[in-house]
Amino acid sequence: MNWKQLHIKLNLVTVLAVTLFFSCNNDFEEVQKVGVLQNQPVGEAENIDLKYTEVEEDSVKLMANLISPKMLDYSNRDFSFSEFPNGIELVVYGEGDKVTKIFADYAIVYNDTDIIDLRKNVVVATPTKDSLFTEQLYYNEKLEWIFTNQPFTLKRLVGPTRGNGFDSDKEFKNFQMLEVDAVFELDN
């Protein structure tokens, strides 16, 4: 009898272990699906026209306007961001009627740092008709500052300048070029 009871218990434990093993397999597949969903955007929007404002005493001041045909919202990530796969136009408003425009074929806005990563055919046009061309540029919204370590071309009234690395305010009043490929004159 003892042997028969041991055999029954061993069979029950084996059946229970096999059942648990196969049920965990299905749960693992569900966990994998959840991981895939977390990598997807939580929202998609078309024809975006975002306005960034700042409250000053009793008024609201328009600081910037971001326009894009498509936005993907990844706010479900630990380091949340918004992606603009079809490019953006960023209009930054300065004192008076001064407007700086920034164009790019692709952009990512990092929500926690207020940094915009602009890529592919990036163009910055200032109110003084200066233009910067590069393949990648970062814009710090809080400091209203642009910078890149990539090759750039700066077109000014005194002629074009090429180099690697550019750091400036939004209107190119205070800028620094790291590696310059040409001799030039600046009225800055």
Rank of each mutant, 00 (worst) to 15 (best):
K70N: 05
L62G: 09
E89L: 14
M63N: 02
F84I: 08
P69V: 04
S75A: 11
F84W: 08
K61P: 05
D73C: 03
K70G: 03
S75F: 02
N65C: 07
P85D: 15
N76G: 14
K61G: 08
K70H: 09
N65A: 04
L72E: 11
Y74S: 13
Y74C: 09
N76W: 09
S82P: 02
S82C: 02
L72K: 06
L66K: 02
N86E: 14
L72S: 10
S68W: 03
P69G: 10
K61S: 12
V60A: 13
G87D: 05
N76Y: 13
Y74L: 12
P69T: 03
D73T: 06
E83A: 13
N76M: 12
R77L: 15
F81I: 05
D73L: 06
N86Y: 09
N65S: 09
I88M: 03
S59D: 03
E89R: 14
I88P: 01
S75N: 10
E83R: 11
S68F: 01
I67Q: 12
A64C: 01
L72F: 12
E83M: 11
L66D: 02
S75W: 00
P69R: 06
D73E: 11
F84E: 01
P69A: 08
A64T: 02
N76H: 13
M63A: 04
Y74A: 12
I88L: 04
E89K: 15
I88N: 00
S75Q: 11
D73M: 03
N86Q: 13
S80K: 07
S82N: 10
L90A: 04
F79K: 12
D78C: 00
L90G: 05
R77D: 10
F84M: 09
N65M: 08
N76A: 12
S59I: 02
E89N: 14
F79H: 12
D78E: 14
N76Q: 11
S59V: 07
K61Q: 08
K61C: 03
L66T: 00
P85I: 14
S80C: 06
N86H: 08
S75L: 09
F84P: 00
